[in-house]
Nucleic acid binder design. Sequence first.
DNA 1: TTAGATGCAAAGACTTTGCGCACTT
DNA 2: AAGTGCGCAAAGTCTTTGCATCTAA
Lengths: 155, 155
Amino acid sequence: MSTTPDVETMVSTVRGAAKRVTAAKRTVAEVLVEAHGHLTVDEITSAVQRQRPEVSPSTIYRILEEFEELELVVHAHLGQPAAVYHLAGIVHGHLTCEICQRTVEIPSSHFDALSRELLARYGFQLDRHHLALSGRCRACRDAGAGTAITSGATA
Amino acid sequence: MSTTPDVETMVSTVRGAAKRVTAAKRTVAEVLVEAHGHLTVDEITSAVQRQRPEVSPSTIYRILEEFEELELVVHAHLGQPAAVYHLAGIVHGHLTCEICQRTVEIPSSHFDALSRELLARYGFQLDRHHLALSGRCRACRDAGAGTAITSGATA
DNA sequence: TTAGATGCAAAGACTTTGCGCACTT
DNA sequence: AAGTGCGCAAAGTCTTTGCATCTAA
């Protein structure tokens, strides 16, 4: 039921919800489908503007909000202030290193036991789309805090 | 090693770090010690200003930053954009309901197994001070999304 | 045709920064 | 006395909102 949507599916969903299919929406959908990791609104905006320079950030926000209501995308808050978005259906957890800020995606199955425990003990239904944990990645731990950013930037 | 600090301990730590002990810092320390849950900067500011109206938010930010460097406090990002702060030593996880925004604190022991798994599998050292998960609390699940805010506000 | 979507600009929430004076040491 | 820390105000980042216009249906 939660397979990664493609552009056509997304377009159909929008249409099916009695919303309008616009060029901006189509482009955002394309960008999200082509992107592999998570993208900030800024990144999405830049990518969209490469094709359609007139599209404004506020429109991106509105489109993402709509896509989220339609359960086409989900967002998460990782280490940085700006939220990141990715397609729904790619259900996974995020491990963000608080030193180098890099994020690793891990299968959400790692959360199975915890999830069951939280439900049983607290009646709390874990949202598997928003799983974000912070800590220190191996590289930064090895480097001993501080001298961490060796190879790249955000993944 | 990580017992909850009291005001005196905090003051000593500040002094020991060759930082100055000011009225504002003392008041922030008091507020944090007296508070039981986590507080936003806004809440801390209001509480501090009740005693010292001249203290400005920017000072609170600077003091919290210093306290965090001294490992006296930690902050976490729960559902809302504003970060929340609490004393270090109160190591626990946070479960935030994405409907009613209420947060429950749970013992971090729930994360033991997951923590071991992440370390073994990814070399990722989970930061037990920043544990924040979102999902739906029992009340909101029972109420069936939407009609959720029945009793109170943020805990 | 007509209501939803967009673009632009302004406002809003949260946080950071610059600067000169006050206060701790 | 010396220099850190503070108050105030301005700027910065991320996000939301208002409104006139445009456009998908």
